[in-house]
Amino acid sequence: MAATPINASVRYYRRGTTKVIWAPTVANKSAPSRSEINAGTALEGETGAMGGWQTTSGTVPTPALGSRFTPVVGGEITAADSSLTFWASKDGDDVRTLLQREDTGFIIWMDEGDVEGQTMDVYPVTVTSQAKVRELDAAAQIMAQFAITSEPAENVTIPAA
């Protein structure tokens, strides 16, 4: 008997689908309420680039004198340095008024859209900088950098609207 194949994915294009929310307050990162999500600010309309926003797990070797093989066990969980890059506004009325250095809150990623029953990732963060991206032949941008302050809640069910 052959092994059962993995479910076939319904592939999608991220642009126009993914939602990114800045929520200043979330009582329980493992179960944000619809009112907490709605009280946030949708960022995807001004987001031009993103970096990080993923967790990784380290390993710890567990050698034993009785074997030349060194097995490993799961170790620390870390999050990559993360950022969102936004379009700058010539009048200064842009992300700089929303995400200021040392602001704390949550970045919520709804990769498949804000769809009840789908999943989201909730990252507790502190804004660490608002770097102005200066390039000769590109539109002006502001890169907001974030410190992820505790383990993100991943694959959390999106509540009903």
Rank of each mutant, 00 (worst) to 15 (best):
A2F: 11
I37A: 02
E116W: 01
E154T: 15
N7A: 12
T59M: 00
F86N: 11
G51C: 00
D91V: 00
Q118C: 00
R34W: 09
I148G: 01
E102L: 12
M143V: 05
A140T: 07
W22M: 10
E154I: 15
A144N: 09
V115H: 01
I108T: 04
T47N: 02
E76N: 09
S150T: 11
E102R: 11
A2V: 15
S129V: 09
G105L: 03
Y13W: 14
D103L: 00
R11S: 07
T47D: 01
K19T: 03
V133S: 02
N155Q: 12
S150E: 14
R15V: 12
V122G: 08
T97K: 10
V72D: 02
R134A: 14
E112S: 04
Q100S: 00
I148C: 03
V60I: 13
P159H: 05
K29I: 15
V127D: 00
R14G: 05
T55S: 12
S89C: 06
D103V: 00
E135L: 15
S129P: 06
E36T: 01
A42Q: 09
T4Y: 08
T25W: 09
V115T: 06
L136H: 03
I158M: 06
A27D: 13
P24S: 10
E151V: 14
V60E: 01
G92W: 14
V60W: 02
E112H: 01
E46G: 00
M143C: 13
G105A: 04
V26Q: 01
W87I: 07
M143F: 09
K90S: 07
G66M: 04
Y12N: 15
L136R: 13
E154D: 05
D94H: 02
P61W: 09
A64I: 08
S67L: 13
I21F: 09
A144M: 07
G105Q: 02
F106A: 02
D91I: 01
